[in-house]
Design a protein around this nucleic acid. Structure first.
Lengths: 139, 139
DNA sequence: AGAAATTTGTCCGTATGTATC
DNA sequence: AGATACATACGGACAAATTTC
């Protein structure tokens, strides 16, 4: 049989299906996902394809894989069932300069710096964390 | 030939080699990387392994791939000599998630993250340091 | 415009190494 | 030590997007 993949690639279809199971609670947080061989049998896909699907879930933060043990479903915290709450939160505080920052700013290690941390999310998933450092009183 | 992978896996070794070429300027920003088949011949690795290596570069922001076209090296250091960009340098590398970041991204401590550090200066003095963290994307 | 060549994308099957229990 | 499961690597096949002729 050839390998037709119209529309979505197979590994994405499988990833979406698994994603739904996790979101619906069919696979509760902390539970182990079906093993690769089980998924292979269920979806009639090769291990490579199954692994690619799981890789998608891992990158999107739905699951965590541990070598030699298995793949676990992660707890999804945010329940905003609205649109994509592409919200960013910002937090500003004072931190001590570590070695790397101290060298850059040419100050001593431990010198207070202003740290502004922005966290952008899409849904429950943290998309990006941006940390901006600068010296106090000199904007 | 069996498939031993002592120490670093092959695809990482290849990725590092390509990374160096980009950093050294052997592959200038915007240039097309050797095609997969060329790399296959050069490194005597299978196409899958080559693709895995390129995937690493993609995740780390070194290159961009376009279907049917090729893989391009990204500009990672701002080379433009305009006054605007002068004094701004960007560095992208992989770091291990510390406790704070791990909690935000809901991953384990030590999970590789992509860190993009931008340093803006006015003259010799460092004005600001921005560190952007994100999870590796794609497979 | 159309066909061929090039290049990346997806998928399969298999084999072997490595980590964990 | 054995069983299980993930990680790496190979080779082959076909699909899809782009470029070239």
């Amino acid at each position: 049989m050839p390998t037709p993949h119209y529309g979505q690639p197979r590994y994405r279809t499988i990833a979406d299906e698994l994603k739904q199971r996790i979101e619906r609670g069919a696979i509760p947080p902390g539970a182990v996902l079906p093993t690769e061989s089980v998924l292979t049998a269920e979806f009639r896909a090769s291990r490579g394809t199954i692994r690619q699907a799981i890789s998608v879930l891992r990158d999107e933060g739905f699951v965590t894989t541990e070598h030699g043990r298995g793949t676990y479903a992660n707890a999804r915290t945010c329940n905003c069932n609205t649109d994509r709450c592409k919200g960013t939160k910002e937090r500003v505080n004072e931190v001590a300069a570590d070695a790397g920052l101290a060298a850059l700013f040419e100050v001593e290690v431990g010198t207070p710096l202003i740290e502004s941390e922005s966290i952008s999310r899409t849904g429950a998933r943290v998309e990006m964390v941006v940390r901006l450092y600068r010296l106090p009183r000199h904007d």
